[in-house]
Nucleic acid binder design. Structure first.
Lengths: 327, 327
DNA sequence: CTGAAAGCGCTTACAG
DNA sequence: CTGAAAGCGCTTACAG
């Protein structure tokens, strides 16, 4: 590969001059500049970013750590994030952790060691630790998780979401509201449950421990959970499903028992991917403000990178109830 | 941040010695080594990978370029890929292109300039160009796309998939088989259509141009396409949907018209994400060999990195028909 | 078993 | 307007 030296030789100038036309850091006589640009083009030269970064301490890369690809919840956030960051010349690079704490720690180290200019962690596990980034002075934002070390945290108001979902059900006259939630009670799920209880209270409905079920989160697990609930003969008239993945399994279980969703049993689901409008019946769901969350996270990160004064540290964004057919 | 020099000073040795204990590249007297390890630990030192890479020309990073996150088709491939590569000490880093050719080109450049040790492009657009990687001698694998420049290409047998899907329908006595496919006819979609035609022919059914529809690919677009087909009064008894996203929209359109999927209208869908078992009715679908594709891509990349002799250049993996309720 | 020195490919004060 | 030189933080022959 050609180096900046090669280009310098071939153009009859010094490497520093080439560097300056490359970066526009100083005025170079237009003839010289043109000549240099020509040989750059002829040689198909591209600066070695590793060397550049070593010197400048900048990579123009923002690392994003997320549990996995394939979950539409992340897509919305990452897209918004990318939109605001790419506008400022940053590239986004993703690391998946598969919800493994070990992998989360490795990902932080990997990206910090590779000199990313900033880090955003989306929906990390409860023990997620950004101190490695903080120690090395790389700005970091935590999304959907209160990380002690992140200067900024972007949260969705899960309590409000839980309230909205349950309240919707109660307003429709449902009083035996099943809550099916993630078996690992991270903050968001804890908050959703709090919202559930608040809504019940607001409607004068007594909280009944026997209506709350925890399950691993997958389509299949949602199905299994619902089957067990039927086997136990639980009395209920509606479901607040705290995860879209659970919802799909729940709906199948109901269908197999010929229960009509939206009539016999009302359902409100958390999360509102495109697919939620295409289940049959379409889902009434809590839409998380993914776009806003991603945008805000991006803006906060830029501020930190530029050492602009932080506004608040924890930002909470409100979700919305999207009413369709299932409730 | 501490550097290798700092560690050397504090341990009373030369930087080269620290380097050797760091990398195990030479035997160092165990006392010395221990002392060095201690100060490394005390100082919480981590080598600067940028500097290391600049010198060694290795980053231990494999760049994966894919259209987007949020599509379960990619999840399977990436997971398998990660499994085989991480076993060999490589980390995977993702770049999303959102199906934009510009972004595809930038991603290749970004990763190559950052010195990735290998590249795999999953399902890139028709004009995708790996020559930038080839020119710089970085091994590259193309998955689900015949890239002229990639030494190795991993393909799914889409023709077979198209055949299997259509054949399934015909075997069940359907003869008016609608084909709804992506409006951008990339190789995979072209092949699926070829399989469709082959299957029709095998069953002695005349190919009818009027049964073939092209549509952008999303839930909503699938719905729209189906609605238009109804408006035109097309006569059909079954659907081969060449994309899972289309299928969801198609099913909703049928449901709204009170047509029973699997009885009035049979459907076979391409792609078999977890969700395919949880639609109502569950989908008969073509399952792509994602795990195999990812594993093979990873293995081929490793071979190239190690300059091992290539076996074949184009590897085609067979899909399978998964029979459920929709056909 | 350990160290001095060169060099990876850039950038950036500094000098002229 | 241009260039010589130092240095970013490592690794790796080479010498001893």
């Amino acid at each position: 590969m050609a180096t900046i030296k090669d280009i310098a030789h071939l153009s009859g100038v010094a490497p520093s001059t080439v560097s300056h036309v490359l970066n526009g850091t100083k005025h170079v006589k237009s003839e010289t500049a043109e000549r240099i640009r020509q040989t750059i083009h002829q040689m198909n030269y591209t600066p070695n970013q590793l060397a550049r970064s070593l010197k400048t301490n900048r990579t123009n890369i923002i690392g994003v750590i997320l549990p996995n690809i394939g979950n539409p919840f992340f897509t919305g956030i990452v897209e918004a994030l990318e939109a605001v960051l790419s506008r400022e010349g940053y590239h986004i690079v993703l690391c998946c952790t598969h919800d493994s704490p070990v992998s989360e720690a490795e990902s932080v180290k990997l990206m910090v060691d590779r000199g990313v200019d900033g880090l955003v962690a989306i929906c990390p596990g409860p023990q997620f630790d950004l101190s490695e980034a903080v120690k090395r002075n790389v700005p970091a934002i935590s999304v959907d998780h209160r990380a002690a070390q992140a200067r900024h945290t972007v949260l969705a108001d899960n309590r409000m979401g839980g309230f909205l979902a349950t309240d919707c059900l109660c307003r429709r006259g449902r009083s035996r509201v099943l809550l099916i939630t993630d078996i690992v009670i991270t903050d968001p799920f804890f908050e959703r449950m709090a919202g559930y209880r608040n809504a019940l209270a607001a409607h004068g409905i007594l909280y009944d421990q026997n209506l709350v079920f925890e399950s691993p989160v997958s389509y299949q697990d949602g199905y299994r959970a619902m089957e067990q609930i039927f086997e136990r003969g639980v009395d209920f008239d509606s479901v607040f499903s705290a995860s879209y993945y659970l919802t799909m399994g729940i709906m199948r279980s109901l269908a197999e028992r010929n229960l009509r969703v939206g009539e016999d049993i009302a359902i409100v689901s958390y999360d509102d991917p495109d697919a939620a409008s295409f289940t049959i019946p379409a889902l009434t769901a809590i839409r998380q403000p993914l776009n806003e969350m991603g945008t805000l996270a991006g803006e906060l990160l830029l501020k930190e990178i530029r050492h602009e004064p932080p506004s608040e540290h924890v930002h909470t964004i409100k979700p919305a109830l999207i009413e369709r057919e299932s409730a």
